[in-house]
Simulated assay, not measured.
Amino acid sequence: MSISIHPDTVLGAVKLNISSLAQSLRFYTEVVGLKILEQTDLTAVLTADGKTALVLLEQIPDAIIAPERRRTTGLYHYALLLPNRKELGLALKRLVAHRIPIGQADHLVSEALYISDPDNNGIEIYADRPRSEWKRDANGDYVMATDPIDWEGLLQEAGEEDITKGLPPETVMGHVHLHTVGIPESRAFYNGLLGFDIVGDYTQMRALFISAGGYHHHIGLNVWAGIGAPAPSPQSTGLDYFTIIFPDSAELSSVLERLLAAGISVQQQDGAAYVTDPSSVRIKLTTRLVQQNS
Rank of each mutant, 00 (worst) to 15 (best):
D137S: 07
S132K: 06
S110K: 02
G263P: 12
Q235S: 13
P169Y: 07
Q269A: 11
I5N: 00
Q235P: 05
T29Q: 14
I102V: 15
W134C: 09
G122M: 02
A112K: 05
Y190P: 03
N191I: 06
S24G: 06
A97C: 07
T180A: 05
Y126R: 05
I3F: 02
F246H: 13
V181G: 11
G159M: 11
Q267D: 11
E251C: 14
T237F: 05
T164A: 12
E157Q: 14
S236L: 05
T276L: 07
I60F: 00
A112R: 02
I198C: 11
V45A: 14
Q104D: 14
I64P: 03
G33Y: 00
G195S: 11
Y241V: 10
P61I: 04
T52H: 01
A127C: 08
K135M: 12
K35T: 14
P7N: 12
G182R: 00
Q291C: 08
V275W: 04
A79L: 11
P67E: 06
A13N: 10
L25E: 07
V172E: 04
G195A: 06
V14D: 01
D117A: 13
N120T: 02
G89F: 10
P130C: 09
I65N: 11
T286W: 04
R94M: 11
T243H: 00
N84A: 12
K15G: 03
H98N: 15
W151C: 04
L37Q: 15
P83S: 11
Q204E: 15
L256K: 11
F27S: 09
N120L: 07
L57V: 03
P130K: 03
Y241H: 15
G200F: 06
D8Q: 15
G182P: 07
I100C: 07
L16W: 04
T180M: 04
E152T: 14
T52C: 06
Y78G: 01
G214H: 12
F189R: 04
H216L: 05
E161R: 14
T237P: 03
V223H: 05
S24L: 06
P7E: 06
Y76F: 15
I283F: 04
W151G: 08
S116F: 02
I227K: 12
A229V: 12
I100R: 07
F196R: 03
A105E: 10
L82Q: 04
V10L: 12
L95N: 10
I65M: 06
P247D: 00
F196A: 10
T9P: 04
A229Q: 10
G140M: 02
R85S: 13
N293M: 13
L154V: 06
I149F: 01
E133C: 08
S2Q: 07
G12R: 06
G214I: 08
A261L: 09
A212R: 00
L54I: 01
S19P: 09
R70W: 03
G214Y: 02
I64V: 15
